[in-house]
Design a protein around this nucleic acid. Structure first.
Length: 571
RNA sequence: CGGGCUGUGGCGCAGCUUGGUUAGCGCGCUGCGUUCGGGACGCAGAGGUCCCCGGUUCAAAUCCGGGCAGCCCGACCA
């Protein structure tokens, strides 16, 4: 492509609304433009990257035996009612994603389990047709409360979603492992180090699932990693191993009630008590939640820790506090509380007394002892893991890593096939059986954002060849006034294109400074410069974007040697 | 959904406190000339409902009220 004809405007200044360096570069280099908050147009350069990423996805998924199709972006709301996800999303999110058209209500969905299940159910009658895995690459929608980080978190985004259908659980595991391996290869080819970690399944459903985490300073997720045994899990899910507990030999007098006016947070209580012996770790955090039976439950964790809720529980909301006056916001505590109480293992193991809420406005209790003044119905692992906590598998200290969730795969089991109509097949013994399903999501536009964030320097983007919009950025310096440069560059351009190299040909009549600055900004892995100076010696110059290494190449064989350089790894 | 900040040519910004020429600067854009292997220079131009609606005033980008949008922090997050 000739730059003189390209729909491209590069910007010298960072856009005012860019919140990450990678996104600012994508805008400055003319890859994307914001249309509305969280909604972007992919300009030609951005689309080329998406195409390359998509091609890699297609190659790997096809190689894994999956079949591409395209389902509608609109799905009838009846399907969501049948699957139960309409209710699961609650009254807020679903209407925002629902389109009322003449033909009825349609959901602009973020995933396609319902349509996929119905589709395969209609085409598959026999175990002989299984297993089958389908996938699509399509625009998804999400009622994002606060879009941010450019393409990383938008209202609309590109996603590859795959769905596997198997005759039994063991076979489902095989399909899952196959998809997981394919995703691992995709990330390898993209040059993005991604770690599969155990995670929560959220509104998708099912139990076994893994997120593919890419380490990044702009990540909104955190996962723990054990350098010794390899355990890796999202902090929302990560189990924490046994923490060293002291022998319990706490002796204090009876607990005392102290006035703590207005102190509804741990920090405020600690500041107000103003006792050197009492820090956040000696207070007890009482977190109100709703359990799987829709009953209130109070979780006790040390005051310096974050509570971790079992996946089927949710935090108390305003309505819950209103419905349960015994659960007092801000001054909640376990002593004399008329509710189910569970405690993190650290609570009974502590060798000290606690400061707890008094279940009365503006008051706390001091010198409260587990076993004497309160107990928990259950003791378990209820804290969010943090750096240095012991691994639940081997006890070694865990590392916490900031990351972006780039893909997420799930074993769905029978969650959808039991509720969606026709999601059955005839088994070998003649009985009718539900499909064992899995689903596999890969954030294509999110990966574009992660690539830009990962592969850049002060001068611009530095794409790995696997996802670069162009393989080669060809500069013709002063072509407008130096006919021999123009002739040589045009010939080289034609040769490279004939060899199948994707070339961005800067044939504009601009100064060398502008040409080079734009080449750096766009970030093709190799820049080839044709100039009068080189031609006098019969050479052109090839410069690697990432390293800055320069190679002089003989003009006569330039096309072939540049093409050869590309087939060798540039990264 | 709560708190804060911001809306001025394509992009980045100043002007607003203390109302008053023709609304300004840098980049970008058009034409001509010089220059040109790391964001050159001169000359001449084009381009603006100052987010919207209402109010105050002889007079509003500027003051007041309401709305909308964007961004940040938090809540939420398939």
């Amino acid at each position: 492509m000739r730059m003189s004809k390209m729909l491209l405007r590069t910007l010298r200044d960072d856009p005012a609304d860019a919140d990450t360096a990678g996104h600012a570069l994508l805008v400055r280099a003319g890859f994307v433009r914001r249309v509305s908050s969280g909604v972007y147009t992919l300009l030609p350069l951005g689309l080329r990257v998406v195409r390359r990423v998509s091609d890699i996805i297609r190659e790997e998924l096809d190689a894994a035996g999956m079949q591409e199709l395209l389902m509608p972006a609109l799905s009838p709301i009846e399907l969501w009612e049948q699957s139960g996800r309409a209710a699961k999303f609650g009254s807020d999110a679903l209407p925002a994603m629902t389109l009322e058209a003449r033909g009825g209500k349609f959901v602009l969905g973020v995933t396609h389990e319902e349509v996929a299940t119905v589709t395969v159910g209609a085409e598959v009658d026999s175990y002989r047709q299984l297993p089958v895995t389908i996938y699509q690459i399509q625009t998804k929608f999400r009622d994002e409360a606060r879009p941010r980080y450019g393409l990383l978190r938008g209202r609309e985004f590109l996603m590859c979603d795959a769905y596997s259908f198997d005759a039994d659980k063991d076979s489902m595991q095989v399909s899952y492992d196959t998809a997981k391996a394919a995703y691992v290869r995709i990330f390898e080819r993209l040059g993005l180090p991604a770690t599969p970690v155990e995670a929560l399944s959220g509104a998708i459903g099912g139990d076994v699932n893994h997120e593919f985490m890419v380490e990044s300073a702009i990540g909104e997720d955190h996962f723990v990693r054990c350098g010794t045994c390899g355990y890796a899990a999202n902090v929302e899910r990560a189990e924490v191993g046994a923490r060293p507990g002291a022998a319990r030999a706490v002796e204090t007098g009876a607990y005392r009630r102290v006035a703590t006016p207005g102190a509804t947070t741990i920090d405020e209580v600690v500041a107000l008590l103003d006792d050197a012996a009492i820090d956040a770790a000696r207070t007890l955090k009482s977190v109100a939640a709703v359990d799987e039976s829709d009953e209130p439950v109070v979780i006790l964790v040390p005051g310096d820790r974050e509570a971790k809720l079992p996946s089927s529980w949710r935090l108390f909301g305003d309505k819950d506090f209103a419905a349960h006056p015994e659960i007092l916001r801000g001054f909640l505590g376990p002593v004399g509380l008329d509710a189910r109480v569970v405690a993190d293992a650290a609570v009974p193991a502590a060798a000290h007394a606690w400061v707890v809420g008094a279940n009365d406005v503006d008051a706390h209790l001091v010198d409260v002892i587990y076993g004497r003044d309160f107990t928990a119905a259950e003791v378990g692992d209820y804290v969010t893991a943090r750096e240095g906590d012991p691994c639940s598998r081997c006890g070694a200290p865990l590392e916490v890593v900031r990351s972006v969730e780039a893909a997420h795969i799930f074993q769905l089991g029978l969650v959808y096939s039991l509720v969606m109509p026709g999601a059955t097949f005839t088994a070998e013994d003649g009985s009718e059986q539900p499909f064992w399903m899995g689903c596999y999501g890969f954030g294509v536009s999110r990966v574009l954002a992660v690539l830009a964030e990962t592969f850049r320097d002060d001068d611009g983007l530095c794409w790995p060849q696997s996802s670069a919009p162009y393989d080669v950025h060809l500069c013709a310096l002063g072509a407008g006034r130096t006919p021999e440069v123009s002739v040589a560059a045009e010939a080289l351009y034609a040769e490279l294109v004939a060899l199948g190299v994707a070339v961005c040909f800067d044939d504009r009549d601009v100064s060398a400074g502008i040409a080079f600055a734009d080449a750096d900004l766009l970030g093709a892995p190799l820049r080839v410069t044709v100039g009068k100076r080189g031609l006098e010696r019969g050479i052109v110059e090839a410069r690697e974007r990432r390293s800055g290494d320069v190679h002089e190449v003989d003009l006569a064989t330039a096309a072939a040697s540049v093409a050869a350089r590309l087939t060798s790894p540039l990264d």
